Computed example of a mutant assay.
Amino acid sequence: MEETFEQRKKYCLNKLDLSKKGSVDEDIQHVVYLINSCKDLFTTSSCSGRIILFDGFPNNSDVQKKGCVWLFVAHSKCTFDDLMSGLSRSTNDAVLKFEPFVLHVQCRRLEDAQLMVLQESSGCPVLR
Score class of each variant (00 low, 15 high):
T44D: 06
P58C: 03
K97P: 04
V102M: 10
D17H: 05
I51V: 15
F72V: 02
K97I: 07
H30Y: 13
V32S: 00
S88F: 07
T79Y: 12
L41A: 01
A74Q: 06
L83T: 04
L96Q: 00
V102P: 09
N60R: 01
S23F: 07
I52L: 04
F101N: 08
S90Y: 11
A94Y: 08
R89Y: 13
K97S: 09
A74R: 14
Q64T: 14
L16I: 14
D55S: 03
L18R: 00
F98T: 14
F42A: 11
T43H: 11
T43G: 12
K20A: 14
L71S: 08
S37M: 03
C38H: 06
Q29H: 07
C47G: 03
M84E: 11
V73I: 13
F98K: 07
F54E: 09
Y33Q: 13
V24M: 07
G86Q: 04
S45A: 14
T43Y: 01
C68M: 13
A74S: 15
L87Y: 15
I35G: 10
F42R: 09
D25E: 10
N59M: 10
S61T: 13
V32C: 03
Y33L: 07
K77W: 10
K66M: 06
Q64S: 15
V24D: 00
D93Y: 05
E26N: 08
S37C: 03
S48T: 04
Q64F: 08
D62A: 04
V95P: 10
F72I: 00
L53I: 01
H30K: 15
S88P: 12
C47F: 00
